[in-house]
Nucleic acid binder design. Structure first.
Lengths: 250, 250
DNA sequence: CGGTACATTGAGAAATTTCAAAGTTGGTGG
DNA sequence: CCACCAACTTTGAAATTTCTCAATGTACCG
């Protein structure tokens, strides 16, 4: 698994983070997701919440475990990975974050981040002041419910992840990951034929799956050889969907 | 891992579940935890929430994945395990539930249970009508916050679990589990010297750890031989705390 | 006594990691 | 245009970890 990243993978220094700040709140108004996502509903026409937009380049951190943040982070564009950093330097990815995802619904209460987030591609994200968001929720129980639904979904995903890691062999986990990404792409309209964007590196897959790059590499090699799945240059291609379903046995 | 349990392990039939119903709400008033737990706060003096008390014997289910429940379940006495049931019959435990634990904070919204809960020892539990609880939350944002804190804690535990399963070898996971149980026992005052109650069977440990009984058995054997940890008749004993800490590398 | 749940052991098989070393690719500065 | 570098991918072989299969042993209960 990926050891604590080299300098390039982490934000190199506090003074000059690879970030270009900016302050807009109309950005959300132009968002391709409109109000289909929680962040959209939250920002809806009359919220008056001011979102600060930022950008980080691939392989840099959006959030670091332990950071104290007074904002809720929402990914607007690009892919990122949330992960836990283990004491011995290993890391385990928790989930894929892409456009429209709130980095952590929980961060509404806890200023201290309990996990890190690293950009896979270049990432654009918004920071919503926690105070404002909280106030908004306080006045609108429906929003609380929507938020809770989000939390519930994430909890369920976490449980699936636990079951995957605890009870499945690597091939099944990979198949499962691929299918999940395909489904997601489909929902967002990014699925073109049997092809969809998949910018994760083998290292990222290994981190999600709880395995090593080397093993992932061999498994992907097999999938390619067997004409089941191909991955190259950030584009995934499912050649044998039924086979994948069978492998993931879901 | 445990295959879909034999009949005895599951509730044998709908007509005569091994449950003796009863309806009391003063029970919570007499609870040893008072208002230190969320359920206590929730039921606090003036809530007027009516809790139905039930009991199930060891190895029976408290909740089954897919059940539709209009109540929130809280464990009052005994130990239980929440777990995911995989399609191929295997199961993966998610967490230990003991006195004072709400089975799932998420169940406040979702009637459909997304995981199962099985009693490890005999278990007494309360069922709080969701409608009432929800109403209570709606009138008291502080309760929402308390609830959210609970959710956040569980999310964090889930993340730890994911990291454990994905990135640690079985010995480290066992050590980690033991220490967690010890800490928990300590907090509740159940730690006597180096000894504390630990009713989990090797099978349960395997299900939590994502391993097999046989493997667990050998590892526990080693721990015993090396005078690090002993487990017998539901009582655990930590002989070499530092060693365990080192193994869990936390 | 018979049965069920649980713990324990041995031996071989399978999955996965580790170590070591090349091969590729895309971008950058000269 | 070329050399070079960093990030990635690929391969081989040996070492570890963990699982599976197959028995056997043990304690408690009705």
């Amino acid at each position: 698994m990926l050891e604590e990243g080299p300098d390039l993978v982490e934000i190199p220094s506090q003074p000059s983070p690879p970030t270009r700040p900016g302050r807009t709140s109309s950005v959300c108004g132009n968002c391709r997701f409109g109000e289909t996502r929680f962040c959209g509903t939250l920002m809806g026409s009359v919220s008056g919440i001011q979102a600060a937009q930022k950008t980080v380049r691939a392989r840099y951190n959006v959030v670091r475990s332990g950071d104290i943040k007074d904002s809720v982070v929402v990914i607007c564009e690009g892919w990122a990975l949330s992960y836990m950093q283990l004491s011995d330097g290993k890391r385990q990815a928790l989930s894929i974050l892409s456009a429209g995802d709130m980095v952590s619904p929980m961060s509404l209460l806890e200023r201290r981040q309990t996990f890190s987030v690293q950009a896979v591609t270049d990432v654009r994200y918004s920071m919503l002041p926690r105070r404002d968001v909280k106030a908004r929720l306080q006045h609108d129980f429906d929003l609380v419910a929507a938020w809770a639904r989000l939390v519930a979904m994430q909890a369920h995903k976490a449980h699936q992840h636990i079951a995957d890691l605890g009870r499945r062999l690597a091939p099944a986990r990979i198949a499962s990951l691929i299918l999940q990404a395909r489904r997601q792409a489909d929902e967002v309209g990014d699925l073109v034929g049997d092809t969809f964007p998949f910018p994760l590196r083998q290292q990222h897959i290994a981190d999600l799956i709880g395995s090593t790059t080397i093993h992932i590499n061999r498994l992907l090699g097999t999938l390619r050889k067997d004409a089941v799945f191909e991955l190259s240059h950030g584009v995934a291609r499912v050649l044998d969907h039924p086979k994948l379903l069978e492998m993931a046995e879901d």
